[in-house]
Write a protein that binds this DNA or RNA. Structure first.
Lengths: 199, 199
DNA sequence: GTTGTACCGTACCGATCGGTCGGTACACCA
DNA sequence: TGGTGTACCGACCGATCGGTACGGTACAAC
């Protein structure tokens, strides 16, 4: 990936987050990046590819991290906690990209839309598999794993509207707080000890 | 409110939910409503007022309902449960309006934006007051009432992306499930009996 | 020294954007 | 019968939309 293209993607994410995908014109992107029409389109192809790349990058990143966590975590509760920390950390670090994704992903069309939706489903499925596995082992309440997972994902995903992207300490604390609430609410056995901090 | 204006608002909400506020042109709204330019603007004033009215109506409705519930509920846990049911019911019944609101409220400008944000804050504050009151009485964990409330609101608000607007039975069951998880996770005393179904 | 290629600016395209305006048809009331 | 208000149409506005064509420049390879 060329450094210019990377610069353009960053500027586009910030611009789309501020004004919306359809609300932001290419003219404004020109002056934000410091390139004129011809140069811009030499690098990006078209406008929709910017939106696609913004969503794809973040989603693929989260799918990759969560797959790794799910493969290594000692048990399901710890796994959920680690995945939650990773998610909230990523949302806080890439708040503009997530803002763009959640607001405008359905402005995508055709193959690009299909791929982004598939990535999003894959990510939710990782969570659901972990939850279902825990429920099968008698750890979690067996009722409605899909709805339960959508609930905790909602807690985190909604945070892009209010979270402050400053310190990772704070994001980890919030992630742990939500995990504590969710796990206490969902565990059949008494409260487990929190896992040691990582990374 | 004239019946024509109401018709236009409904069509606009559906159209904006499909294509986004900036993505949907007035030409499409014309043919969806069955009126031409002149007639349309005779009723609506301008495009932004449509967006404003869509958000304002739902938010004022929720503020009103929750204020009433908070005044009448026997205790804080029951209050949260009733407010949660009312919220999820409203989201399911007005899914298109909430989709428009969450995606495009910040396309509003000036006074209209200020008012909508104020309504949204007022609504969150109702929840936070209930939670803080419960925490002060030793019912809930006292840590971070604002973050805790934003969490449960996230569970519900995120649902506009996946909930099916068919039966109210299902929405009440989902609301209760989330409340059970949240309350179990947050209550200091053991699990309380669920309140009787209402309305 | 010439050719290829990556990069960039300028000029321009047709389409569509949100919005305005003059005018008409009709109902209601005096 | 004349006057007033409401609902509506259709033509039109300047601005902006995303995108393209094309020429020029800088530089590396041969």
């Amino acid at each position: 990936m060329s450094p210019q293209r990377e610069r353009i993607l960053k500027a586009a994410a910030a611009l789309f987050a501020r004004e919306g995908y359809h609300g932001a014109g290419m003219a404004r992107l020109e002056q934000e990046v410091g390139l004129k029409r011809g140069a811009l389109y030499h690098h990006i192809g078209n406008k929709e590819s910017l939106l696609y790349e913004i969503s794809r990058t973040q989603l693929e990143h989260m799918v990759g991290i969560s797959t790794r966590i799910a493969a290594e975590a000692p048990d399901e509760a710890a796994c959920l906690r680690l995945m939650a920390r990773a998610l909230l950390r990523n949302i806080a670090d890439h708040r503009v990209e997530w803002t763009v994704h959640y607001r405008d992903f359905n402005a995508l069309t055709g193959e690009r839309l299909r791929h982004v939706l598939e990535l999003r489903d894959r990510y939710a499925e990782i969570w659901q598999r972990v939850y279902a596995s825990g429920a099968a082992r008698g750890l979690f309440q067996p009722a409605e794993p899909r709805v339960a997972v959508l609930g905790i994902l909602g807690m985190f995903n909604y945070s892009y509207l209010w979270i402050e992207g400053d310190g990772r300490l704070d994001t980890d604390r919030i992630a742990d707080l939500y995990c504590d609430i969710f796990l206490r609410g969902v565990l059949l056995a008494p409260h487990p000890p929190p896992p040691p901090d990582e990374e």
